[in-house]
Simulated assay, not measured.
Amino acid sequence: MAIWRCTLAALGLWLSAQSCAADGCGPYRVGLREYPRLYQRAAAGQFGGLDKDFFDALAERSGCKLEFQLESQPRLWMRLARGDIDMASWVVPSEQRATVVRILPIMGGRMMAVTWRDAGIKSEAEFLADPALRAVAISQALYGPGYDPLLAQLRTQGRVSDVADFDIAWRAFAGRRVALMLAYPWSLAGQPPELMAQLQLSDWHAAETATTSGLALSRKTVREADAHKLEQALRAMRLDGSLAQLLARHLPAGTVRLLPP
């Protein structure tokens, strides 16, 4: 009988431990991409930026354990689809993406067409009219309702160089291997003034709504209860102003707006 009592007691402890583990949130794998001001390597080698501070605050508020993994944009979406990664930040929504992830909107910003002043490109129509002009884009990235159709059209003409990340895209543009790059204006902050003086930033789709982005949660791997915890934590960060403070700390004033919950 004593053996049975011990066995039952051990079983009870195991079931209790399993219950506690089931009630815990995470650990969830967060796929991060290198991008100016969002997640970039400092001179000392460590990573920092808006993403680091945002996910640290989100983990503290939600009680969810989060683990960071650095990925390129193309591999990020491949891994999200497979269920190898659970979350990603600043994801632009689309119907196709909605089948893979649930997106909690956070901010909106104006995407700009970046060209060289001496090229004299004044409009999207002028760019399209010259078949010698090429654009660079980050593979699997979305740029908003105005610019995604433009890139789709240019791709049918073989006029887009698709690359893995922002750094490669910027080097292709800065080296004048392409004539157009799409970017948020704050992503170019920090470039030398003499270089910025040579650039022309144009809003070719000013009539369109701003490009929105948010937190993406895998439909395959993030439990519904945990998604609710994360959504409530995000709502609390909005209400107490800490989310607005994070955006203001890392992004220039007036370049983004916080979206309502």
Rank of each mutant, 00 (worst) to 15 (best):
M1L: 14
W4C: 12
W4Y: 13
C6S: 14
A9I: 13
A10K: 02
L11E: 01
Q18D: 14
C20P: 00
A21M: 09
C25E: 06
G26Y: 00
Y28F: 03
R29E: 14
Y35I: 09
L38N: 12
G45V: 07
G48K: 04
D53K: 10
F54M: 04
F54E: 00
L58D: 05
E60P: 00
R61C: 10
C64S: 01
Q69A: 13
L70G: 08
S72K: 09
Q73M: 13
D86K: 08
M87L: 12
W90F: 06
E95C: 00
T99E: 15
I103A: 08
P105S: 07
M107R: 05
M107A: 09
V114Y: 08
K122T: 12
S123I: 01
D130S: 12
D130Q: 12
L133K: 15
A137G: 10
S139D: 14
A141D: 06
G144H: 04
L150A: 11
L151P: 07
A152P: 02
L154C: 09
G158T: 13
D162P: 06
R171L: 15
G175S: 15
L180I: 07
P185L: 06
P185T: 08
S187R: 04
A189F: 01
A206H: 10
A207D: 15
T211G: 04
L215P: 00
A227N: 03
K229Y: 00
A236G: 00
D240Q: 06
S242D: 03
S242I: 02
L246W: 04
R249S: 11
P252C: 04
P252T: 02
G254I: 00
G254H: 08
R257W: 09
L259Q: 05
